[in-house]
Every structure is written in structure tokens, then in C-alpha cells.
Amino acid sequence: MTAVDPDAGHPATGLDEVVHQRVRLGILTIAHEARRVEFGYLRTHLELTAGNLSKHLGVLEAAGLIEVEKGYEGRRGRTWITLTAAGDTALAEEIARLKQLIVRMESAGGQ
């Protein structure tokens, strides 16, 4: 369980808007677990259209959280997404803040 520091600000104030978004958090999570993930896997498991997924990947790439590598396997084009070190840190921080938020909500609910 994450400890709550009463002197620290509310965890919601430290949230990174690039990461704190359901789809982008999903992309970072999958890329973290898999080390590298193909565009089609993300589209299927996040249930997105290709255009929508591309927009989110663009946001994450612009923020330096992922790297996008395009290539071919035979005649088939494949796009692979890799998490950068900054992306790894951002994901860890986001998860830590989510846990803090849950602790706050639970302690507020118990009072």
C-alpha cells in the first residue's frame, strides 16, 4: 500500500495530462510489458480505429515517451512501438499517483 504524505500536494495536481488518459496509459502499459509492440496488437486490444490510435501515438512520440519504427516483413508493412526511458519513468509515476489517489479516496471515504 502506498503511504500518503500529508505535506505533499494532492496527487491529482502532479498528473501528467499526456499520460493520464485511458488510451495513452494503455499504450504505455502494453509497450512496457512487451518491450516492443506492433501497431495491430494495440489497435485490437485497445479497440481503436487506426486513425485514432495514430493520433495517440503521435502525442506520445512528440512527448518523447515512445519511439515508432516503421518497416516491412516481406511485402507487409509493420509499425513497432518501443517505450523510451522517459516513457518508462512517466508510466511508473502515473501508476504511483493513481495508487496515491486511491489511498486518498479510501481514507476520505472512511472519515
Binding site: 488518459q21 485511458r22 488510451v23 502494453i30 493513481l98
Partner: peptide, 28 residues
Amino acid sequence: MTTDPLAAGGDPRQLLSDVRSLARRVRL
């Protein structure tokens, strides 16, 4: 999944649960 930002009204428990189930799916 939706594309709505979570800061306003997003449930951290649901988000964390989604993260864990996605990680589990990848491992499988």
C-alpha cells in the same frame, strides 16, 4: 476504451484495474 481525459471524473481504481488486466493479457 474511450479517449476522454481521466483527470476530471476518471476513476483511478478502474484505470489501475485496466492497466493490470492489459499487463496480464500481454503476459499471456
